[in-house]
């Protein structure tokens, strides 16, 4: 299972980086959100994949032994997803306003704050 997930993570990173390097703002935002998902999936995979194991101790155990599910990566991902959701919502509103103000979605035309007069 790790191998499949690793391939998925790699695919998401590749797609994200490709989209970030495009000139369209919309693709830029989609690319950034893909990079966020890639990072989440990476945390999930790195946290160790176990099947059918409880994340808690049995009453008769004093410490966790053997294969147990670690709930922390899930908690981290949950937090990251919520944050990512908020940031993406903001980014979408931002590109809408920028499109309305400038009339373009090509990053190459958005250089007025960069150029030296």
């Amino acid at each position: 299972m790790e191998v499949e997930l690793a391939v998925a993570v790699g695919g998401l990173y590749a797609a994200g980086i490709y989209l970030v390097m495009r000139r369209s703002i919309i693709k830029l935002i989609i690319g950034l959100s893909l990079l966020g998902h890639a990072a989440n999936l990476l945390i999930f995979t790195m946290g160790g994949l176990v099947r059918g194991q409880p994340p808690v101790m049995h009453p008769w155990e004093t410490r966790l032994v053997g294969g147990f599910a670690d709930p922390i990566p899930e908690a981290l991902i949950l937090t990251a997803i919520v944050i990512g959701f908020g940031v993406q919502a903001f980014a979408i509103v931002l590109i809408k306003h920028t499109y309305q103000a400038t009339g373009t979605e090509d990053l190459k035309d958005l250089q007025s704050s960069d150029l030296t007069s």
Partner: peptide, 22 residues
């Protein structure tokens, strides 16, 4: 100009957050 500056700022900082998270 503010919106244009914000797009660049947001894009690079989100990239940095994704790297940090990874």
């Amino acid at each position: 100009p503010q919106l244009e500056g914000t797009i660049k700022y947001v894009a690079l900082n989100l990239l940095s957050s994704a790297l940090f998270l990874a």
